[in-house]
C-alpha cells in the first residue's frame, strides 16, 4: 500500500470518524451542561428568545463601529480568509467531486482561475494572521499552542492544495498525498482545539442572544 492509498483509504476513514465523533461529543457536552435557571424578571426592553438568537447570529458578524479602528485589520483578514476558504471548499471542482462521490450531491464548480485567486488570498491572509499574532503585543501574550497549531493546520492544506492545483515543485502524486494527509490532520484536530468554532460560533451566539433578549440587553 502506497502512502497515497493509505491517505485515501484508512486515513480518510479514521479522520472522518474522529471528526464526527469529536464534534458531536463537544456539542452534546456543552448542550447538556447544567444551566442555572434564569430567575430574574424579564427587563423592560425584553424581546423574544428566538428572534434574539437569530439577531445575535447575524449582528455579531458585523464589526462594531465604535471599535472599528482597532478591529479593522482582524476583521478584514478574517473575512478574506473565511470567504476564500468557502470559495475553495464549495467551488473547487475536485472538492465537489469528493462530496459527489461520497454522497451523490452535486453542484456546478467555479472556474479554476477564481478558485486559484481565492486560494492565494486565503494563504496570504493566514500568513498575515500568524505574523500579526507574533508581533501584536497583546495578541502575543494571549496566544497559546492551540492558536498556532490551528492556524498552521489550516495553512498547510491550503499551501499543498495550491501547489497541487498548479502542479509545480513536486510530482502530482506526492502533492496529492500530502494534501490529503494534511487535510486529515486538520479534520482530526478540528473538534478539540479552537477550530471547533466551526460548530460553536453560531451556537454560542444564539445562546447568548436568547439570554440577552430576555433580559432586554439586546439593542
Amino acid at each position: 500500500m502506497t502512502l497515497l492509498d493509505f491517505a485515501r483509504g484508512p486515513a480518510l476513514y479514521a479522520a472522518t470518524l474522529i471528526m464526527v465523533c469529536g464534534l458531536v461529543w463537544r456539542l452534546t457536552g456543552v448542550a447538556l451542561l447544567p444551566f442555572r435557571r434564569d430567575l430574574a424578571a424579564s427587563g423592560p426592553n425584553a424581546k423574544g428568545r428566538v428572534s434574539g438568537a437569530l439577531w445575535q447570529v447575524v449582528s455579531r458578524s458585523f464589526p462594531r463601529r465604535s471599535f472599528l479602528g482597532r478591529t479593522m485589520v482582524t476583521v478584514t483578514i478574517g473575512y478574506a480568509m473565511h470567504i476564500g476558504l468557502a470559495v475553495i471548499l464549495l467551488g473547487g471542482a475536485p472538492h465537489i467531486l469528493l462530496v459527489t462521490q461520497a454522497t451523490g450531491l452535486d453542484w456546478p464548480a467555479l472556474p479554476k482561475g477564481i478558485v486559484a485567486i481565492a486560494s492565494g488570498v486565503t494563504l496570504v491572509s493566514l500568513l498575515l494572521v500568524i505574523l500579526r499574532r507574533l508581533t501584536h503585543p497583546v495578541l502575543r501574550l494571549l496566544s497559546n499552542v492551540d492558536d498556532y497549531l490551528s492556524i498552521l493546520l489550516t495553512l498547510i492544506p491550503v499551501l499543498t492544495g495550491i501547489l497541487l492545483a498548479e502542479e509545480t515543485l513536486l510530482p502530482y502524486e506526492t502533492l496529492l498525498t500530502w494534501h490529503i494527509l494534511s487535510v486529515e490532520a486538520l479534520m482530526i484536530w478540528l473538534p478539540f482545539g479552537k477550530l471547533a468554532h466551526v460548530v460553536f460560533v453560531f451556537a454560542g451566539r444564539a445562546a447568548l442572544g436568547a439570554r440577552q433578549a430576555r433580559k432586554g440587553a439586546l439593542q
Binding site: R8, G9, L12, Y13, T16, L17, I18, V20, C21, G22, L23, V24, W25, R26, L27, T28, G29, V30, A31, L32, L97, L98, T100, Q101, A102, T103
Partner: peptide, 21 residues
C-alpha cells in the same frame, strides 16, 4: 474522490460522540 465513508460507521461515531458528551 474516494468511495465515500461507510455511513453506518459515521453514525456509530456520532453516537459515540453523544455518549461521551
Amino acid at each position: 474522490g474516494g468511495e465515500g465513508p461507510p455511513w453506518g460507521a459515521v453514525a456509530g461515531a456520532a453516537a459515540g460522540g453523544v455518549a461521551i458528551g
